[in-house]
Design a protein around this nucleic acid. Sequence first.
DNA 1: CCGGCGGGGTATAACGTTAAACCTCGCGAT
DNA 2: ATCGCGAGGTTTAACGTTATACCCCGCCGG
Lengths: 333, 333
Amino acid sequence: MSDVARVAGVSLMTVSNVLNGRPNVGAETRLRVLEVVDELGYEINLTARRLRTGRTGTVGLIVPRFDHQYYSELAARISDALAPEGLHLVVEQSGANRERELSALSLARLQQYDGVLLSAVGLDFRDLDRIHPDVPIVLLGEQDVPDRYHSIKMGNVAGARLATEHLLAGGAQRIAVLGGRLDAPHLDMASSRAQGWADALDAAGLDPDPQLVIPLEFFSIAEARSAIADRIAGGLAVDGVLGVTDEIAIGAMSGLRDAGRTVPDDVQVVGFDNLRVSEHVLPGLTSVDPGHDAMVAEALRLLRRQMEDKGAAPEHVVSDVALVERGSTRRPR
Amino acid sequence: MSDVARVAGVSLMTVSNVLNGRPNVGAETRLRVLEVVDELGYEINLTARRLRTGRTGTVGLIVPRFDHQYYSELAARISDALAPEGLHLVVEQSGANRERELSALSLARLQQYDGVLLSAVGLDFRDLDRIHPDVPIVLLGEQDVPDRYHSIKMGNVAGARLATEHLLAGGAQRIAVLGGRLDAPHLDMASSRAQGWADALDAAGLDPDPQLVIPLEFFSIAEARSAIADRIAGGLAVDGVLGVTDEIAIGAMSGLRDAGRTVPDDVQVVGFDNLRVSEHVLPGLTSVDPGHDAMVAEALRLLRRQMEDKGAAPEHVVSDVALVERGSTRRPR
DNA sequence: CCGGCGGGGTATAACGTTAAACCTCGCGAT
DNA sequence: ATCGCGAGGTTTAACGTTATACCCCGCCGG
């Protein structure tokens, strides 16, 4: 910048003023400066600007994995929603293991953003309590979180219940919850969706059979596929599967086919998340739609509120869920 | 940091030295400093460090869309590969439209990273020529790029040819290339894969029928699905489909089913990218594997080379492709 | 004719680090 | 006795911006 100033024969501040469109610069001067900028190929140093101003124009999104579709769709939605406001999204992967999660979460890293959207499944309360950043944060979450954070939660229990009721209405009696768990220390995604499943069965006067709760470690398609196929090969009787995510449900459909079952005639399948691809797999996957757009809109609203007013009182929003019926389940009779 | 220094009764530099594990700090002093750091909850300001040192420990990956699976899988792979080296990956979306692409590409933004992996489809030569950054860059690319950049290219032509030959071997005669185009100004992904298709047909003594080149705008599953269904409804005779990406091929399978065709009996389908999900759709999607791990490894090698030696001569690597056969195509007879 | 004011512009001091030079011991070798 | 040296530490000057205060000049109203 000082090179530009020298060549243009003005002061540093004038160059800065021109570049930032500030007033009190003469028209000729402005033109001359812009010319020199172009000529020298000068580009502003965002790091220095950030150090000086404290603003970055950048929002960070932290997700456990880039390659879980739910997160990549989320990232795309948020990025698109942020663009009109002149804000930029950058995405970081916190990773499966704790060490990397903590490193991504270190206050130091978070402070590089004007605001942070944190979608951290593995995270537990104590980690969150350790950090008390002055960066605006919104937790996008599946699990319960400390009250002092702003948060958007999915209607996990309600959605899983809706899905399970739909399976029951279609005639299913033995519904497995693939990827679920019942004994989690905190109410995380896997356990709250399993909870919705149990609630629906209870309400229907059925006993949730622990055998039908099939935990998964990585929540991947491949893992889900082999898990359900193995159980069936092991003699488990099943006529409905609630995948705790769409990816798991997609894996389940393949696994059921591996095991010689047809969907939806032998076994109905329903997923959770309503991913874009779910409409296009064969048969189309019935899924719980968590209201993506509303979640994103709310998340950004909470973020903006904090950016404008540091002391804004935490809000906790729970998104509405809805069931999207497709070919992997039978219409209620 | 100066607070820490004052409370610990040492100089700023000593605190800095402790925090960076530099020598020439006494054991007691080190301990005392660390205590105070903890007590005050001090966290280093990465922006200031970056301004001073010029290093960030961060690599940027710029992709057109987060929610195209190919890119999210790529991001995950790269992030995983970078972690052991103590480098951090952040991902930015350049977006579909030119304006946002240019903004993501502004030298200013790129300079925030120690290195940049650029996977920009929409980009044309002139954009790339405008920037001549001193940040190490590797182009991950589908299209031809200026020689002065380091680049990793997929074996697009070879892969598409392989796939088409496989369809021919399985007995297909009228093979559509969904998402392809032949008249592109530059050899981008869509046109180089279409080129491979044309090459294979030529070699087999068949005439590439322009009707069978079905261009797409967004390369989305939904678009592919309706495009193929519409063509078939319009009377197009087809017994093989080469989707230029796996997502397109997945859409094609749904569209074929919508049109009353079965896969692979009526129509064989093959994709390109070998996404994780492709193994698990029904039927399994035959796909061209572009050698993901090798590409990532090479990309990082080129990046490191530039980081270590600014003036390193540009290298251009083309990845090896391989066909992965699954249920969406017939075995050669 | 003077005071005030606004347009155009500049000088200076930060923002929070770290590289580099430098300082001061105490100790062992000469 | 002196020198060199290394361990432990400090001082200073950047890195590239921008906020703030300030300066100068011409013009307008009273």
